[in-house]
Design a protein around this nucleic acid. Structure first.
Lengths: 218, 218
DNA sequence: AGCATAAATAATAA
DNA sequence: TTATTATTTATGCT
């Protein structure tokens, strides 16, 4: 799948600078990806290389895992759940804890066959149950997931021009302030700390985007 | 720019049963939203208030629109498309232009019934077509989505023998130059940076194909 | 009606 | 895993 290809491409040392245009086409070749980089090979790399399957993976149906991963994502989205929610819910209910990253990596098959094999039934069971609750109404699903039923998106903050000026002056001096510094800036401007933190994140993004354009223009 | 990126997830004819889902879209409580804010009421606000429907909206099936909006989102995600991609594709193909914001607002029903009524068939038609192309392979879908059919393939670059010699000498020293180095080489040879980057990609590919060994092991 | 950008989510690095 | 970046979605403005 494209998903798998993308992962592979990104991990492959062959790729210089992951150019979005390259990624989106799915034109990269999974076969290009070396699986012997001193790490364990991932499902996404192995699934297209049945011949090279190393010892110890005979019992694992990689194709089945890939199918499930693909399906899992769609079903998760159909339920309107985020990777974070799934991870947190699993952590709450089951033995092992799963982070958002873990779910992300499973969906992208950026995971060893052994781990995938272990995780798959857990996800399968949980998802089926979530769908079951969802049938009875979204409220039940949210309870099952453990989220606050009506967690609303935060209202978009408007910064005053004065505040933006101050923020920019700080940004010029240091685009990556420490947590301590963020706290102080937030206090000075009398804004929420989190809001200030996000402002710096987005500001970095913007700068990066614009400067990238400039680079291409050169 | 980098809009149409990695998340080209999960293709394949996986049909999603239109289940009572709770995408974020539907998760908010429309009934809680006040209608009278001095603005025109939105579909999401009206759909649960059939009694209060104002004049001029008799001919519009709000429930149907809500169903479609919900479904549209799921189908869009199943195709692995972003709102941005949809908006851009629609803009490219049809008469009126649609921004990412427009798609977002349609999915959230944050749109007047009249606008929704107008947009719905457009989206319906486009999505069906997109799914059709997807059936034939993700590549077709991406062409359809990104598709300026008029956009011509870049003309194949001819390197002079001298340039190739220089490139090869660089390649021998370092098969995987950094972005900075590529830029410098391109400037020295007076070729397009992208062309040089691709040359290195292709050169590595060639080497790999012929040598069968992984030269790029870190 | 849509740009600019804040907020949220997904992906990657550490 | 946690921390951060990259990408997508949502929304205040006008």
């Amino acid at each position: 799948s494209t998903q798998a290809s993308v992962t592979t491409a990104t991990q492959s040392p062959v790729v210089i600078a992951p150019q979005p245009s390259m990624l989106k086409t799915g034109a990269t070749h999974p076969s290009m990806a070396p699986i012997n980089c001193g790490e364990l090979a991932k499902v996404g790399q192995l699934v297209n290389k049945p011949q090279q399957t190393a010892s110890g993976e005979e019992g694992i149906n990689l194709e089945e895992i890939r199918e499930f991963a693909k399906n899992f994502k769609i079903r998760r989205l159909s339920l309107g759940l985020t990777q974070t929610q799934v991870g947190q819910a699993l952590t709450a209910t089951e033995g092992p804890a799963y982070s958002q990253s873990a779910i992300c990596r499973f969906e992208k098959l950026d995971i060893t066959p052994k781990s995938a094999q272990k995780l798959k039934p857990v996800l399968e069971k949980w998802l089926a149950e979530a769908e079951h609750w969802n049938q009875k109404g979204q409220q039940n699903l949210m309870e099952f997931v453990g989220g606050e039923p009506s967690k609303k998106r935060k209202r978009r903050t408007s910064f005053t021009p004065q505040a933006i000026e101050v923020l920019n002056s700080y940004f010029e001096k240091n685009a990556l302030p420490t947590g301590q510094e963020i706290t102080e800036i937030a206090r000075e401007l009398n804004y929420d700390r989190e809001v200030v933190r996000v402002w710096f994140c987005n500001r970095r993004q913007t700068l990066k985007n614009t400067s990238k354009i400039n680079v291409f223009q050169v």
